[in-house]
Design a protein around this nucleic acid. Structure first.
Lengths: 253, 253
DNA sequence: GAATATATGATTAAAGATGAACGGTTAAAT
DNA sequence: ATTTAACCGTTCATCTTTAATCATATATTC
């Protein structure tokens, strides 16, 4: 086994077991005590575990896992704010559609705190994480997986969503512009997004401020189709005002 | 094998395995250490993988979850053997169904090395991992997620699978017994498994030896419905023979 | 077909990782 | 308080991995 792999597994093992002795690790990883100690030292330096006499102990809290995701993606902190507000719109007993995308992922922790909510999502990454962490009903449409993006797509997806009507559709988008409306780079998802926009009591767009005043290849809908845009306070005042003047509702958080 | 193909496969293999040593790659691709290193360097430059001492690691966060199950799962090594053999049954251009379950998960690395194969699975954990690691077409049925098990189920799933016919269905099961046949503990999945068994040219059961000679609550099908059972060599000779005498085909690995 | 570029495998020195041994330290048992 | 056993850190010899160089083989280009 590669050293790096051993370190990773050791960390995972310690986290799973709460506490492990050096001898136990020697057995499990087939290395000498000296090496185990060196490994534990290293994990300790990284702040991954807690050294104790005779072995190591799991470090309390989730701070490390957060570090991972924190690095992922631009404007993550803004996305969290957007989703926090978005989640307050959801009421007990409602069915919501959660569109695929990295912004939508930030909804997971807030959905995890809810109970009587039914989430339909075309993102298997989100579905998988909701299935693990949340105690709510999760449904996915059928279809083909778009590699790397975890998106379910295709005719099967479209016919599934055609039969679905939800209370709120949370849609994410690549570009927002007054003239061209909402647009995305991938043609495959146009029909799906359109369907969810028309098959929902309320359509909410979750998009960080960088999406405004840009245009992508494929038009999804005019801005008027969206009931509410949620974006970060980073969106400049003049731009926001210009949209408001065209009767577009933007909520900045 | 030409260089470009080797690089592609190497990348897929590393992504599927999480960690791979230089020696392992030397074995697998029949090239020298020097070449493997050069290949890894190149993949690293492209940002496709992550170099570590002794080999390479999948880029991005290591799937901790996989590492957990790897250690915690019973008979994992046997399951790997079973899946390795099972994967050899798949031919170029075929569509296969891969049933939900921990055994099925071990198919992922072998599927990751294939190209022209279409996988349909009712397990979003498997779908997510194939979407990340493998370069093959993946399809999921629509339906509700069974919490903690990552299984897609419900009437939507059933109607989807009713419209599907595959070359090989790889089914996993909780219990196998001569009289009662194949059975599972969860009623929800009975119909789905039945549908896949009848809607496939060939039905292959992947089950570790501990499943034999046990009975679970819900009958799925008689043993005769299964074309081939694959299990570990741990299955005792007398038991295997008894099944063979009843015209049940068991392949032990 | 010759010249050039690219790919591969062998060799080797330097860096890194490992395991054993030893002495000092700590914690528990008496 | 003393003893005892386990634990920890250090040092050093050994083995593994890496990176660089060179020679050979294979493709490409003109």
């Amino acid at each position: 086994m590669i050293k790096d792999e051993r370190l990773n597994r050791m960390e995972a093992y310690i986290n799973a077991q709460q506490y492990v002795s050096v001898d136990e690790l020697v057995e499990r990883f087939h290395v000498s005590k000296a090496t185990v100690r060196r490994d534990l030292d290293r994990l300790n330096e990284q702040g991954a575990i807690c050294l104790v006499r005779g072995g190591a102990r799991k470090k309390g809290g989730i701070e490390r896992e957060l570090l991972y995701t924190e690095k992922l993606g631009r404007n993550r902190e803004e996305k969290v704010r957007i989703c926090q507000f978005a989640s307050t719109l959801i009421e007990e007993g409602q069915t919501i559609f959660l569109d695929t995308g990295v912004t939508s992922r930030e909804m997971i922790p807030f959905l995890a705190e809810m109970r009587n909510v039914h989430v339909v999502t075309d993102d298997i990454w989100i579905a998988t994480h909701l299935a693990t962490n949340a105690d709510i009903k999760v449904t996915v449409p059928g279809g083909d997986i778009r590699r790397g993006f975890y998106t379910i797509k295709g005719s099967e997806t479209e016919s599934f969503l055609a039969r679905l009507y939800v209370d709120i559709a949370f849609i994410s988008i690549d570009a927002i512009e007054l003239e061209f409306g909402c647009s995305i780079t991938n043609n495959d998802e146009v029909l799906i997004k359109q369907q969810m926009i028309s098959h929902s009591k309320k359509t909410v767009m979750i998009a960080d401020h960088s999406k405004f005043e840009t245009v992508a290849s494929w038009k999804v809908c005019p801005l008027g189709d969206i009931d509410l845009f949620i974006t970060g306070a980073e969106l400049s005042e003049p731009i926001a005002n210009r949209y408001e003047r065209c009767s577009i509702t933007i909520h900045t958080v």
